[in-house]
Design a binder for these strands. Sequence first.
DNA 1: TCGAGACGGAACGGTTCCGTCTCGCCTTCG
DNA 2: CGAAGGCGAGACGGAACCGTTCCGTCTCGA
Lengths: 221, 221
Amino acid sequence: MSSTSAPQPSTPAPGPGRAPAPGPGRAPARRLPGGPVLQDSVTEAIAEAFFEELAAVGYARLSLEAVAKRAGAGKAAIYRRWASKLEMTVDLVSAFAVADSGPADTGTLRGDVLAFVTEVADALNQRLPARIIPDLLAEAGRTPELAEALLTNVRDARRSRAAQLLERAVARGELPADVDREIALDLLAGPLYWRLAVVHTPTAPDYLDRLTDKLLAAFRA
Amino acid sequence: MSSTSAPQPSTPAPGPGRAPAPGPGRAPARRLPGGPVLQDSVTEAIAEAFFEELAAVGYARLSLEAVAKRAGAGKAAIYRRWASKLEMTVDLVSAFAVADSGPADTGTLRGDVLAFVTEVADALNQRLPARIIPDLLAEAGRTPELAEALLTNVRDARRSRAAQLLERAVARGELPADVDREIALDLLAGPLYWRLAVVHTPTAPDYLDRLTDKLLAAFRA
DNA sequence: TCGAGACGGAACGGTTCCGTCTCGCCTTCG
DNA sequence: CGAAGGCGAGACGGAACCGTTCCGTCTCGA
């Protein structure tokens, strides 16, 4: 197995993700003496197998046995790290989702918007995220713990970036100060998510350009 | 091998028989959320229980045993009608998705758009659809048969209505003939779906009005 | 060198579900 | 009025998981 498009573990040191697991002392995040960032190879293999399996069968059907098998590990290796499937999911998804956060200040509103939708499109055009994200979001509707983790780690991060994008445009005078931020945020994320993650319709090469033009017109209305 | 909608039990006549589920008598046949009338009371009870269960636990975890129990029916009653969970799902979902199709020609583009987003919002604000739709769409990414049924029965129907909405506006001269239909369709569905079904954020009373204004500006850009 | 401990692997009992099949009960129709 | 058949209920074998526990091996730090 190779580290393909697997998530970057990144192990945030002060991360709030690590759950306490009130049971008998479960080993918390391990660190190899040499590197504070890289986790050990077993954890890495388990994480990669987890995301592959999650994309293949979905959260509800995901079997930790299958994850262990795909990772070439024993189930005990998983239970040594996490207390349950839910805890494992929250932990791994949080670590992975926090990763990317480019500032993307291109100097113009149009450049910022295009960069934003391009980034969203790139993410949703990848095999694993395109399958995993809708599945987890659907599952979150039923599992408050998962919903909380997703909202704080994924939505809030992305939402704040989109909000900053708007504020920069207001500061530049490209948008009126009373721009409808609530709707603008929905417009930035919704159409692309709908098209790529829900209906799975491919986008023409100039789609993002055209979409950007429409979004700008909507923001200014 | 399943009929398009309901099965064909030999007894179309209503017959409460032995006191069935806690459901009130039959009277003029009951309706499921936005659905057509089902043939007999047992099929009806099974369908209702199916959707309730689907909303509660999701497709992957849905157990036909639980559906039977909730319907106050035996498992055999289900297997007499459908050969499998997948076939049952495709059949029932198709039957209910085709249902509503108001023409919604209000005479103006703005009126049509507002009517459209209002209808979408009403649907997604209901308890069952808000939980079921994202779940089935995620599952469809993994189950081609389900994807096909959803696309042809749900997306295509709604998509054609949205397309007609645009064509009417072009005919009235409210939109240029070369309006970007592809993006317009994504804009009509995406933001609301994102907000209501994905992020589960409630909408302010005037949200749909404001959204409509933004959409019109985008269409005309 | 040697012990602590993580490793892969394999098994365990307990659940849950599927799909089939068997009961009587009851309605319907010939 | 009697046979036919749908009905609810549920037992059944087979399969899959889960969570845990036990192996024997291997690595690493003291």
